[in-house]
Design a protein around this nucleic acid. Structure first.
Lengths: 226, 226
DNA sequence: GATCGTAGAATTGCATACAATATGACTTCA
DNA sequence: TGAAGTCATATTGTATGCAATTCTACGATC
């Protein structure tokens, strides 16, 4: 059950962390932006205690930097860091798809294919934002189907950090988008054929290439420092 | 500079997290043990605020589980979880040694060899505890030499979790220790020969095997649930 | 003009007080 | 006997107040 009707019983600091995470990931709070405790508390209508607890969660996720006695800031994004994040994402997604392909049900397999079809629809409609979000969901769903808690949480955290870089930069140009679609198409073929090694190879290469695309785009747009 | 003379300016919650981390990793606090806030505060002579902040850090590291409105407990260790942790450690250490071997200085290389020599000394003296600690340091040092912040912090966290399992279980029996030493010896040869692919392969296999050893030992001793 | 020093304001760090929730023993009633 | 309800207690969650630190503006000194 999905408990969509359950009333919100999350502790305040978790709710605060959730909204802050969204704001940071989507760029509403810019990198290096100062996070003044009292100002944020007024804005969110809470006291400083749960806010400070939320900061600790977000710091562990790499989204906030706490400078002792000097206050928290939105974690800066460096091209170096994004590059490093993709260094880890590549082998982890490869591991993920290996597990997923041995564990996922026929129903889950068709869900992956459906997600891919949806991304194609966005692509053919020229909707880059749709492609962008579909892509994110596609990869996260694959990992979810690996049924591997440690991989899941580690990937989630890294994926969020990589996604920040992508929110910050403009969307891929047509050439990069074409390459992305091509990789996904090849991946789906390998999945349909149950060719685990091939799928893992394709996905790992794809993630590495995506990392390079993101970095190129960040460099060109000049939003992140080196 | 190493700032060994700098006075301790860490925030309280960081110091608290450090001592709690040690206690949990070494098993002074047992898995599933209740972490009563007021009792711990009396023991540590602090107030609840920094303690609760420390809990958040430790939860992110997988060492503590916070159950809303019910209090924190020392994170339980399941064989499943330890197994999953090693699933990630293997490809990450492989990545690490690839980076380390391309980046490390001659001096760092000899440091690795020295660590290995020290482990051999412990081995030949029949000091299993020494071997155990040397092994931990050997792997962590390799990762440090990769000069890769994201890998470093991710590995640190996973390594800590795996080490908990090892603290909990008895030390390896002679057979497992022999296999470990053999793997390290082969690894050192590959490192000396600058054979990156070979080293990465050996290390990845070694980590997988270590995972199986740890799990076997835990199973036999019956300290962790499935 | 530059540097250092200093006072006061702003801000974070920590402790404490109060509110909300969970726990557990006891009672009641079938 | 036992299932369910109730109340007191223990514990966690949140707010607030005080202490410690940092920042800023201004003035003194060279």
């Amino acid at each position: 059950m999905n408990k969509t009707n359950a009333i919100n019983r999350n502790p305040l600091h978790v709710q605060v962390a959730n909204t802050m995470r969204d704001r940071i990931m989507q760029g509403a709070l810019r990198p290096a932006e100062r996070l003044n405790e009292v100002a944020l508390c007024e804005d969110l209508d809470i006291s400083r205690t749960p806010l400070r607890e939320a900061f600790k969660l977000l710091e562990a996720e790499g989204l906030v930097t706490i400078r002792p006695h000097k206050g928290a800031i939105v974690a800066e994004i460096s091209i170096q860091e994004i590059s490093e994040v993709f260094d880890l994402l590549a082998p982890l997604e490869a591991l993920g798809i290996r597990l997923a392909m041995t564990r996922m049900s026929a129903q889950e397999k068709s869900r992956i294919i459906a997600l891919h079809d949806r991304m194609i629809a966005f692509y053919e409609a020229g909707d880059r934002e749709g492609c962008f979000l579909s892509d994110y969901e596609f990869h996260n769903t694959l990992i979810a189907f690996a049924r591997h808690d440690v991989l899941q949480s580690t990937h989630q955290s890294l994926s969020n950090r990589s996604q920040r870089g992508r929110y910050l930069a403009p969307r891929f140009d047509q050439q990069k988008l074409d390459a992305t679609m091509a990789a996904h198409r090849k991946l789906i073929v390998a999945i349909k054929n149950d060719d685990v090694d091939q799928a893992a190879r394709i996905l790992e290469d794809h993630v590495v290439l995506t990392g390079q695309f993101v970095i190129d785009t960040l460099r060109e747009s000049g939003v992140a420092r080196d």
